[in-house]
């Protein structure tokens, strides 16, 4: 398993990276953490002529809070997310999900930007970002633009990111104190993609659910934002009936393929089960549990 030949570029700035992307078009690929791309290259399923390594770009790193948003550089790694006190305090859903991705070695390399931008439905962070109403900052030859995570995913390896664009930053509205969130991932073992996974982010007004977002991982061509599941929870006490209804709505949107993780029907059921668990856990956390 040896990759094909390529030319290696290590731009020092986003501008330089974007220029290279523009120059090489479909012959160029961004190298971030590399743990999706390099295995594909070793199988010769990806044969880019130019690799643009963005790990040397300082402005793509860092995790900070600014203007009511958590701003995470696209090249911040899962390990960076796990080590961030800011995220632990303001948005514990992120480290919770990061810890369920791959294994320790890969988390040192794997970036948040790579995870959300490459369009693999098996990646965990897209669903998390949708649940948190994150916004992706993109930069291309024509300048910068923002796309909401909920509008970003069109299908498997098909996203709003243009060939000549680079994801530079993930911007998450800082969740209100008192919110509750959970990511529940069922997998065969450490390092696996989800058989099914679900994220839930809830807030309460008294004992009534004020807002709710429920999303699913790896049970469709892309991460799924289940608007109807959130609707089923808002205004309720998130009791068993509401949770069951939300989970049923999540299952209705799940359309997994049968694979070695299980037949489609099972994976659909697990999407429902993970949604149930995520909602219950998020609710308990919101209530200080």
């Amino acid at each position: 398993m040896i990759p094909g030949s390529f030319a290696y570029h290590r731009p020092a700035s986003v501008d330089e990276a974007v220029a290279l992307l523009g120059q090489f078009g479909e012959d160029g690929k961004v190298l971030a953490g590399g743990h999706s791309l390099i295995p594909m290259m070793k199988l010769r399923l990806a044969t880019p002529e130019h690799l643009i390594d963005i790990n040397g770009i300082g402005e793509l790193k860092g995790i900070r809070e600014e203007g009511g948003q958590l701003r995470i550089g696209a090249a911040a790694t899962q390990a960076d997310i796990l080590a961030s006190d800011l995220l632990a305090n303001t948005c514990p859903l992120l480290p919770e999900a990061a810890a369920l991705i791959a294994d320790p070695q890969i988390r040192y390399c794997g970036t948040l930007g790579g995870n959300v931008a490459n369009g693999d439905p098996g990646n965990d962070m897209p669903a998390v970002m949708m649940a948190l109403a994150a916004i992706y900052a993109l930069r291309g030859p024509g300048g910068a633009r923002e796309v909401a995570a909920r509008d970003f995913y069109h299908g498997t390896f098909d996203t709003a990111l243009a060939e000549n664009e680079l994801l530079t930053e993930i911007r998450i509205p800082t969740p209100a104190p008192g919110h509750g969130a959970s990511y529940q991932k069922m997998k065969r073992k450490v390092g696996d993609y989800a058989t099914a996974a679900a994220a839930a982010v809830l807030s309460f007004d008294g004992d009534r659910c004020a807002s709710a977002a429920v999303t699913l991982t790896n049970v469709g061509e892309a991460a799924i934002f289940v608007t109807e599941a959130g609707d089923a929870l808002v205004g309720t006490a998130v009791d068993d009936t509401a949770v069951a209804e939300a989970a049923a709505r999540a299952m209705a949107l799940a359309a997994p393929v049968s694979d070695l993780r299980g037949p489609a029907e099972y994976r659909t059921q697990m999407a429902g089960e993970m949604a149930r668990r995520a909602i219950r856990t998020a609710a308990a956390r919101a209530k200080g549990g």
Binding site: R188, T195, R261, G262, Y266, Q269
Partner: peptide, 8 residues
């Protein structure tokens, strides 16, 4: 005894 088989 994968989870899906047991679940069935």
């Amino acid at each position: 005894h994968t989870a899906w088989r047991v679940w069935q």
